[in-house]
Design a protein around this nucleic acid. Structure first.
Lengths: 342, 342
DNA sequence: TTGTAGGCGTTATCAA
DNA sequence: TTGATAACGCCTACAA
């Protein structure tokens, strides 16, 4: 086993107490003693046992995030940016990030939350992909456990969030497609229980209405926010007798799946079919033609969330408990320009 | 605080021991008693305190991964797939994944390793982006701490790895570019201290040699495996008096940066400039023209690594301690086909 | 089959 | 300024 505080104390003929206090920088240790202790501990390679420390201090300096995933995500940059943002910001505050994955609503998910929350494996949780009514919110509120969330459920609780106006921004995306001349615009959404689906679908409808385009149920399909789901849904849409000329997707991963489908059906995207996404994943500027998208800064949102969570854990007052993010409609001019030249 | 085992015991007028053993499924508890205990614990919402359990059991059921990053990664799907693979496989074995980020070689990185390893915050570590000689390998070997690694350093130790033949496969990429008629092929690599850089650069050189193309130092630039680095390097290459007609990149993120640069200089990628990557990040099939790449299954590699690590932690014999992955040259025919039609 | 008791390594209270 | 002592909550010889 490793060096313990007891061994350091024995080596110096000091009490464990003194060593502990010296290393934690308390003022009531003689400076000379303190320096000796620090030096010796260093030399002996002493590092406090985290389990013992957590048990005693009753905190873990760790925040948790359980990635809501039905199946392996081979491809979803959203989560890359999200977890990277959480990890970076957590580290900046001296916190680690504990990550796991579980299918939303599954038994495994509930058990993981219980193990982490009631089992005190973490000091706070980060949620995203909220449901309209979300058991996690109810559970964490009742447990009085610190958490923050991207998006907000309809549960009658107030909790810290970072959000965007999903309905508004999705309608902006529809505006854009209409401005390109499209009238038959399909929508590939997320599972119905998701808050973001409700918002984006509303945005889709209000966008259509604003331009006098009638809503056509056959043009609305629900995907699962993965490229695979987008592919499946697009294949169905494109097989319709009167297929859409544009497809707006609930997120970028879905849109990428639509591109696959379009290629498979030898449709020239941008001419025979317009595709739009939502998230603003970087790197997709180079799809041909460019993928218009609502760019929400996922990495920054995640940092914001982690910052709010650590502040809350440390009982620091939050300036804002509801941060509103203003995304941007990315038309991705540069490549669009080139495309127009063809 | 939460319900403790003591409270469950008191409620039932049983000893803590009996409750503990019943919940852990030991055979020496009367079936009737066991059922009563399980039921009561459930009702009372008892969940074992993880810190106490870890302290006592001397294990954490957690594996660690410290993402080697110099700066925030706004875009690198490699890490998305990698951490998702680790988390999924860890969960399948009852392990959690602890994640942090630290600049390679930094003080912060060393401290994080010490805190996790000597502080017993995790039971094992996952490494990637190995250096030619890597302090992490030396440190973990000396600490006799379980770890696995993607890629292998030149340190004189034997440790479990999942690898690809980087030199060979990079030369295959060069073959491909040469077959398209290119002779002035540049290479944007990684920092020199990285093992993958040594391999891929060797592959680049051997590929050139095989086709009788002379090596030209001016065409080799080192990037940093990010799209930003790729952009910078490409801008320099394209400003040369006699610029390359093809650029092979050490990874896909770098290649994406090259696409930016090409766009900025109004170069038609695929006609005036060929770009090739390495990793096989999904979603890049839709760049125009398609990005040829060596597709290594990052998600699967990560799962493989996590599986090997948990087995090692649980002292299960590993069938293979050195797994060799065979990637595939992706030319991405479908879009290439379309491109050719233009 | 159940209970007693000790200890995992640390921090915190209280005396000295 | 330092030290003895008692937890934190759990698991596990060992005893009954």
């Amino acid at each position: 086993m490793s060096v313990t505080i007891r061994e350091v104390a024995r080596r110096l003929n000091l009490s464990i107490t003194t060593v502990s206090r010296a290393l934690d920088g308390y003022a009531d240790v003689a400076e000379e003693t303190r320096q000796l202790i620090v030096k010796t501990a260093q030399e002996m390679g002493y590092v406090p046992n985290q389990a013992a420390r957590q048990l005693r201090r009753r905190r873990t300096d760790t925040i948790g995030y359980i990635l809501p995933a039905d199946e392996p995500r081979f491809f979803d940059p959203f989560f890359a940016e999200f977890t990277a943002g959480l990890a970076d910001e957590a580290a900046a505050h001296g916190f680690d990030l504990l990550v796991s994955t579980a299918p939303p609503g599954s038994q495994a998910e509930k058990q993981a939350y219980e193990r982490w929350v009631q089992g005190h494996k973490v000091d706070g949780m980060v949620l995203n992909r909220l449901h309209l009514f979300d058991w996690r919110v109810q559970y964490l509120m009742q447990a009085k456990f610190p958490f923050v969330s991207h998006e907000r459920s309809l549960d009658p609780y107030d909790y810290p969030t970072v959000e965007i106006k999903g309905k508004h921004w999705f309608s902006v995306l529809i505006d854009h497609l209409v401005s390109l001349g499209h009238r038959r615009i399909a929508y590939i959404g997320a599972p119905a229980e998701l808050k973001l689906q409700a918002e984006r679908l509303e945005g889709y409808r209000s966008g259509l209405t604003r331009h006098g385009v009638s809503f056509e149920p056959a043009l609305v399909i629900s995907g699962n926010l993965t490229s695979e789901g987008g592919y499946q849904a697009a294949m169905r849409l494109l097989a319709l007798p009167d297929p859409p000329t544009a497809i707006a997707c609930a997120n970028d991963a879905t849109a990428i799946g639509v591109l696959y489908a379009a290629h498979e059906r030898s449709l020239v995207v941008g001419e025979e079919l317009a595709v739009a996404g939502f998230d603003g994943i970087e790197g997709f500027e180079h799809t041909q033609p460019p993928l218009p998208t609502i760019n929400q800064p996922v990495y920054q949102i995640a940092r914001q969330l982690a910052g709010m969570l650590t502040a809350q854990i440390q009982s620091q007052p939050l300036e804002e408990t509801h941060v509103l993010i203003e995304p941007v409609l990315e038309i991705r001019q540069s490549t669009l320009g080139r495309h127009n030249q063809l």
